[in-house]
Design a protein around this nucleic acid. Structure first.
Length: 487
RNA sequence: GGCCCCAUGGUCUAGCGGUUAGGACGUUGGCCUCUCACGCCAAAAUCCCGGGUUCAAUUCCCGGUGGGGUCACCA
């Protein structure tokens, strides 16, 4: 086989996701197995959702796991740029070509108009779909309106011959056929001039000579649109492999509601990177020989698509922890000692904690017990549960305010850095917004984060505890409270 | 709801027509042991259901059921 070119194409919209690592792993392993190339492309075409710093975070997460790429925005390559926001002229050129050939058309329907259309369709219990209201609009007139600066999108013109179908060959699942009448005239260029995923992905995969598209099952229903785009351009489509989606315990798609999904959570709480990739590798792939512990190199050596199953596996953190425990036991004491020092006692982190502890310890020996909660994963709430009963607030209200806090702090870009000033600004605004006294919320935060009534200043403490550990505890505290009897 | 994907213990999986259905996590019981942990041993599966095909189906085909995904100017 000629050396494959594969890619991972994450969106820099938040913390690096476990699912990205999972798909990245399979791409990486497949490329290496066949001496191919693993490309990293950043899909930052949604200006509203991209957050600063998350591109860097993706680099960090993949490197931590050892999933190294040969071409990407940081290291370049022959097919760059590797950031979609830097490829806008390329997309415009390709859209212009489709427009000129009548394979796409401009649509002037406003978002409100389309929302109204869907509302009517819903009421009449029709299929939700774009009704093609601009599909046959006079191109000359459309060009005039566009030239005059009227906002609009560009849609692909899906072939509508009666009975027409589009077949996607999935190498893991076989042929999957879709009726064209059920495929929307998808928007390929948004009114802000940015391409949508569908267009950008097809154009880039072609131009970057991607031979195998290995991605999550969530994409399988949009693959016919991609196939149609390849046909419209007259290009050969790559081979498609849709892997099952990682699931929560209730089988729904892995989500932060139910599980920590940031790769950094696992890194910062002391999971070993080799263990983590090994665990991801056991989901969907099987080594055979009743063996499930293997290194990345061993997985590469053994990898074959016939060893990959298409079902969506449940991501079980308990089993992951058991793997980690095994690997810790297997380390000699010296290695483990240095790993522990590197993980817990980095000079910067230790210094930050010492600064907070100095005025509160009398003997050097007081340090460890006083600061234990900075290092633990979860903390014990049994001693402080009573203190979480905020006067005039029901248990449910307390649980909800904690949950809301978690949700909002994850979403707020201003709190991304998780520094003390950011946290304070965010938290004060949060109290204001929800009509809670700072005293009430700050108490809850302190108890949840530290498991104690007395601790160093809250926001410095939160910052030193770290984002993922803090999030874990807030969620855990909310869970513990939820299971308490009403007060 | 339409379309699409998937289906071996609670979970991850081995199996590729004939097996006492194997391993791992978890659970339960036991052993080891100054405690705990580790370690060791053991227990638990209508192979989703119903039809076919076949001398023979967990394995192949069809239908059902169940679960999931997707139906945006998000990816």
């Amino acid at each position: 086989m000629t050396p494959p070119r594969v890619r991972i194409a994450p969106s820099p919209t938040g913390d690096p996701h476990v699912g990205t690592a999972y798909i990245g792993l399979f791409n990486y392993v497949f490329a290496r197995k066949h001496g191919g190339t693993f490309v990293l492309r950043i899909e930052d075409t949604d200006q509203a959702r991209c957050t600063p710093g998350s591109e860097q975070a993706i680099f960090e997460a993949l490197k931590w796991l050892g999933l190294n790429w040969q071409e990407g925005p940081d290291c370049g390559g022959d097919y760059g740029p590797y950031r979609q926001s830097e490829r806008l002229p390329i997309y415009r050129e390709h859209v212009a070509r489709l427009l000129a050939e009548g394979k796409a058309y401009r649509c002037f329907a406003t978002p409100e108009e389309l929302a109204e259309m869907r509302k009517v369709q819903r009421e009449q219990k029709l299929d939700l779909a774009y009704d093609g209201r601009y599909r046959d609009y006079d191109p000359k007139q459309a060009e005039q309106r566009a030239a005059a600066g009227e906002p609009h999108v560009v849609r692909m013109k899906v072939p509508r011959e009666p009975g027409a179908t589009t077949t996607v060959h999935d190498c893991l699942r076989g042929d999957v056929t879709f009726e064209n009448r059920l495929i929307d005239d998808q928007v390929i260029m948004k009114s802000d001039g940015f391409p949508t995923y569908h267009l950008a992905c097809v154009v880039d995969d072609h131009l970057m000579k991607i031979s195998h598209v290995i991605r999550g099952e969530e994409w399988i229903t949009s693959t016919p649109k991609h196939v149609l785009l390849y046909q419209a351009f007259g290009w050969e489509a790559p081979a498609f492999y849709h892997l099952g989606l990682l699931r929560n315990h209730n089988k729904s798609k892995l989500s932060k509601r139910k599980n920590p999904v940031s790769v950094f959570h696992y890194r910062d709480l002391g999971y070993l990177p080799g263990t983590f990739v090994n665990f991801l590798g056991t989901l969907g792939f099987s080594y055979g020989d009743d063996r499930e512990r293997f290194t990345l190199d061993e997985m590469v050596e053994r990898f074959e698509w016939s060893r990959v199953s298409p079902g969506g596996p449940v991501f079980d953190p308990v089993k992951l922890a058991a793997f980690n425990a095994d690997d810790i036991r297997a380390m000699d004491v010296d290695t483990l000692t240095s790993q522990l020092i590197a993980h817990l006692y980095t000079p910067e982190r230790l210094r930050a904690i010492v600064a907070l502890a100095r005025e509160r310890i009398d003997l050097l020996d007081d340090f460890v017990p006083y600061t234990s909660f900075f290092f633990a994963g979860k903390v014990d709430y049994s001693q402080v549960l009573g203190k979480m009963k905020i006067k005039k607030r029901t248990r449910k209200e307390v649980v909800n305010i904690l949950k809301t806090y978690i949700e909002e702090i994850e979403r707020d870009p201003a709190a991304r850095g998780f520094t003390a000033p950011e946290l304070e600004t965010f938290s004060r605004a949060f109290c204001e917004r929800h009509g809670w006294k700072t005293r009430e919320v700050f108490t809850l935060l302190r108890l949840s984060i530290t498991g104690r009534t007395a601790a160093p200043p809250l926001f410095d403490t939160m910052a030193a505890v770290g984002k993922d550990r803090a999030r874990l505890r807030l969620r855990d505290a909310a869970d513990v409270l939820r299971q308490q009897p009403e007060w």
